[in-house]
Design a protein around this nucleic acid. Sequence first.
DNA 1: TCGCGCATGAGGTACGTGCCTCATGACTTT
DNA 2: AAAGTCATGAGGCACGTACCTCATGCGCGA
Lengths: 347, 347
Amino acid sequence: MNEEIVKRRATVHDVARAAGVSLATVDRVLNGRPGVRAVTAEKVEQAIAQLGFSRDLNASLMARARDLNVVFFIPDGTNEFMDSLAEAVQRRSPLALADRIHLSMRRVKALDAAGLVSGLNQLDAHSCDCAVIVSSDEPEVLAAIDAAHRRGVAVMTLVSDLPGSARRNFIGIDNGAAGRTAASLMGRFLPQGGKVAVVAGSLHLRDHAERLEGFRAALGAEFGAIEIIGPLEGHDERTETAAIIARLLADHADLGGLYNLGAGNAGLVAALEASGRSGDLRVIAHELTPTTRAGLRSGAIDVVLDQNPDGEIREAIAAARALALDASRTAATDPIEIGIFLRDNLR
Amino acid sequence: MNEEIVKRRATVHDVARAAGVSLATVDRVLNGRPGVRAVTAEKVEQAIAQLGFSRDLNASLMARARDLNVVFFIPDGTNEFMDSLAEAVQRRSPLALADRIHLSMRRVKALDAAGLVSGLNQLDAHSCDCAVIVSSDEPEVLAAIDAAHRRGVAVMTLVSDLPGSARRNFIGIDNGAAGRTAASLMGRFLPQGGKVAVVAGSLHLRDHAERLEGFRAALGAEFGAIEIIGPLEGHDERTETAAIIARLLADHADLGGLYNLGAGNAGLVAALEASGRSGDLRVIAHELTPTTRAGLRSGAIDVVLDQNPDGEIREAIAAARALALDASRTAATDPIEIGIFLRDNLR
DNA sequence: TCGCGCATGAGGTACGTGCCTCATGACTTT
DNA sequence: AAAGTCATGAGGCACGTACCTCATGCGCGA
């Protein structure tokens, strides 16, 4: 009763037989080598489609005795979240290697398009199957992605998407939904309404812009009694953010809430604690880091919205594997969920 | 500058050379076949440890031309969450097959230890490498797990753990933390304090008991102004839960919140909406299902704490793979996070 | 000392794919 | 007609492991 008919997966041999050609020809088609007439290639494609053949990636990697190479470009600087991403890459590395996937990482200066572009330009299809980048939206970067794509290097965006480019996948949260979630929580925390200040890193960062938009829209639609102050830009820096928060607290004695949708949380916590009003306002921040963790514990921060860096790296690797199998499509990946952290469910 | 020395992974050949024995002997040791003196086996083990050799699972599965078999035992009945788990297994199945992992599933009557036990007893090491079960804590089940373990079938617990057994891994959330999180949210939602009712499925379910314990502890420690009513048991059934909620609402006109730490959410929503007080109380429930999703949208439910079924199945498969490589240890897995869902971050 | 059983070595085939060489036949160019 | 080009077939080796057979050598008891 619990028997199941297990269809053996189709192999290249099956494809060759079905197409009425030799193994060598199937191989030429599969690996894009020359020497096959269009009509013959078409027969092979049909056989592949009909049998639902899909190359066995593990056998393939084993046969060519070369690992799948995935290169991560992670911004360097003072942004703790980027460090978590880098650590997640390191953590995954041995695990991935067991599956013949070689991860490497380059830290590039944050928000420095030129550095990222030159890094991308150095990649060739032989040494890198897939590049994963975290980038702001700059024309040079888009051009470099397209160039890499033409050279046979797949590019994926992480954390912040670049929809206009030839990037094959985006791995990250829905930032609009993150902003709406922040609004929804803030609204419930302040049932009487009041003033809520919004601090961003830079509105030129696509993820920040999307969060702000979502926050505004959801507050406007559901919590009309809340007044937004800002957004103010702290450029994801500790001191600049601290100064902004200090000024906000001084100017608005009746401030009820604070939403920092960028980084710079060390500055936020420092300013709150210096003001002596830590715990009096409802504070929502992004990304679970040592700083926000401490903020949650001390009560300076009420909620942290998080994108799980380990999950993102895991999915990026899964997507890179999938792209290696079918370079012509966008890989389906498990969505990255928006984590909501309070003091009690810190991981 | 970005060059990296890539150590080739050790193979059985390397181990044979290092141990000064033949490939055949290494093979006998690795696969537990007889015909090796203890001293020789020891030499091989040392070489393995020294080289950090780890069997290449993909090559191994390919060589024996047999998939890794993982059998899921998922409770059947009216519990929507269990259906999500079953669907997640189905969704993963083709993906897993591409990696030579064959998933199968048996729906067994919920809370029916005998059915599960007989299912487990039917498994032999040849047709099943790993069984994944969702079970309440019954002595017969523990015995069946131990027996399966002795037959060479690894067993993992899902959702609800059975720590006293020979289960190799537990995949699920930290239910104590889930209860504390519910308390933390409820406390913030009701800054003035008030009455909060707690409804469980059955306190004989380990996960439910752990949630209750966490909820009580965290409320007691931080939100003394909140009074707990209950727990009442609805046995995860729609009608019974509805009746309980209706009575609670009738008896306590000043009820401020409701925490349903079990299933039966259809009954909860129905009773709330029938009472006309939907939206007046803060309601926290568990597991994102069509019912709780609708409840979030309508405002009947404020927060849903969730364990991502797809993530759990993914990690169960990853753990099964790891166990196939090293049957002597518990596999390290990515922790399953407690998802917190509001209306605005529904996935 | 003969034979028995056991530990071990040697070497083969298979899994599914990549990549290589060489042969063959067809068709084109000179 | 000879030479060249191109599409294709045939087949082999490799990757790392599983599993099989057969041979060999050793120590032991009769």
